[in-house]
Design a protein around this nucleic acid. Structure first.
Lengths: 207, 207
DNA sequence: GTCTATATACGGATAGAC
DNA sequence: GTCTATCCGTATATAGAC
C-alpha cells in the first residue's frame, strides 16, 4: 500500500513538472526558458527538475519528442483507415488539427522554430520510417488520385495547401489579431468556419 | 577627404556587424544568439557591438523592425496601385514574397516566433495605422469584392489563404524536406511552380 | 522526495591600452 | 576605431540538510 502511494506520488510530481515544462517551453522556446520558470510554474523547487530529469536539455527533448509524435501519431488513425475516402480523410484531418490547435495555439511556432534550430537532432528521432508509408490507405489513395486525375502539377502541392491553410493561421494569429483587432474568441470562430471551408476549397482543387 | 573616409569606414564596420547580426538572429532567434556569435560572424570583436549599438537588445530591435517593415513596405507599391486589378495584385504579391523568401527562408519562422514571444513590444512599433488602410487601392477593391460576389463567408479567409499557401511552406521547409527527401533546390522549384498555381486556386475561390 | 545553499560556467557589458 | 582583459549578474546543476 505504502509502495503504491509512493509511486503515485512520484509520478504525480514528475508529471506536474513535465506539464509545467511543456507550458513554459511551448510558450517561450528552449533558449528563452529558465529552469526557474519551470520550477515556479510547477509549484516545486528548482532542484526537483534535476532530480527527476537529468538536465534542462533532457527534459526538453522528452517534451519535444512527444509534441512531434502528437502531430504525427494523432492522425494515424484517420489516414490509415481504408474505409474512408481520401476527401473524408482530409476533412477529418483538418477538423482534428483545428481542434487540437485551438487548445494549443503556440504549438506550430514552437515546433517549427525548434525544428528549424536543430533539424538533424530532432528529426532523426522521428523514426516513423519512409517505408511504412506504403501501407497507409492515405498514401494508396493519394497515388490513385495522382494517376486518375491528371493534375498538371505535383499532388504534393495539395497536401501542402491543406496543412498551410489549417496550421498557418495559428502561427500568424498574434499578428493577424493585432492588425484586424480581432479577439481570440473571434479568431477561434474564424477557424471553426474553416473546418468546412478548407475541404470545400480543396475539393475544387481536385476537380 | 579624411573625414569622408572615416565616415565610410565607420559605416562599413557598423553595417558589417549589422549584417552579421541579421544572419545570426534570423537563424537562431534572439534568445539563442550570443553576442560572441555575432562578433565572430562579423569578423570583428565583441566590444565593437556595444560600441556601435548600445546593447544586444537595441541591435535586435533595429533589425527586427527592418524585417517587419520589409514584410509590409515592400508590398506597398503593389497593393496601393489603383491601375491593377485585385487579382493582378494578388499574383504580384505572391511572386514578390516567394522571391524574397527564397533568399531568406528563415524569415517567416523568425518573425512569427519573435512576435509571438513579445507581441506588445514589437507590434506597437509597426505604426502603419489602421486608418491609412482606407486609402489603399487594395482595400477598396477588396471591399468592392465583398459587396459584389456574395461570398458566404468573411473575405478575410481569402487573404489568409494567400498568405498561408505562400509563406507556410517556407516555415515548414526543414520538416517537409526531411519527410520527402527533397533538396533545397527541389523545394525552390516547387515554390516557383506555386507562383502560377496559387493565383489559379485563389481565382477559383473567387468564382 | 523535497528543500536551501552554493559551486561553476556562461553571457552581456565595460575599462583601458593601443 | 578596434582590441584584450575583466567585471558582474544570472542560469544550470549539485551538495547536503531535513
Amino acid at each position: 500500500m505504502k509502495k503504491t502511494e509512493d509511486i503515485e506520488k512520484n509520478a504525480s510530481t514528475e508529471e506536474k513538472i513535465k506539464e509545467a515544462a511543456r507550458r513554459v517551453f511551448t510558450q517561450k522556446g528552449y533558449a528563452a526558458t529558465r529552469t526557474r520558470d519551470i520550477a515556479a510554474e510547477s509549484g516545486y523547487n528548482l532542484a526537483l527538475i534535476n532530480y527527476y530529469f537529468r538536465s534542462k536539455e533532457k527534459l526538453f527533448e522528452m517534451i519535444m519528442l512527444e509534441h512531434l509524435q502528437l502531430f504525427v501519431h494523432s492522425v494515424m488513425g484517420i489516414v490509415s483507415d481504408p474505409a474512408t475516402s481520401l476527401e473524408t480523410k482530409i476533412e477529418l484531418l483538418i477538423s482534428h488539427y483545428i481542434d487540437m490547435l485551438k487548445g494549443n495555439p503556440d504549438l506550430p511556432i514552437f515546433v517549427l522554430s525548434e525544428v528549424n534550430a536543430n533539424p538533424a537532432k530532432l528529426l532523426s528521432r522521428l523514426g516513423f520510417s519512409k517505408m511504412k508509408h506504403e501501407k497507409l490507405a492515405f498514401v494508396q489513395q493519394w497515388k490513385e488520385l495522382s494517376a486518375k486525375k491528371k493534375l498538371k502539377y505535383n499532388p504534393l502541392h495539395i497536401l501542402l495547401n491543406v496543412l498551410s491553410m489549417t496550421i498557418f493561421p495559428f502561427a500568424a494569429s498574434p499578428l493577424l489579431r493585432d492588425r484586424t483587432g480581432m479577439s481570440v474568441a473571434e479568431f477561434n470562430a474564424l477557424m471553426e468556419e474553416r473546418k468546412k471551408l478548407i475541404p470545400m476549397w480543396i475539393h475544387d482543387m481536385l476537380k
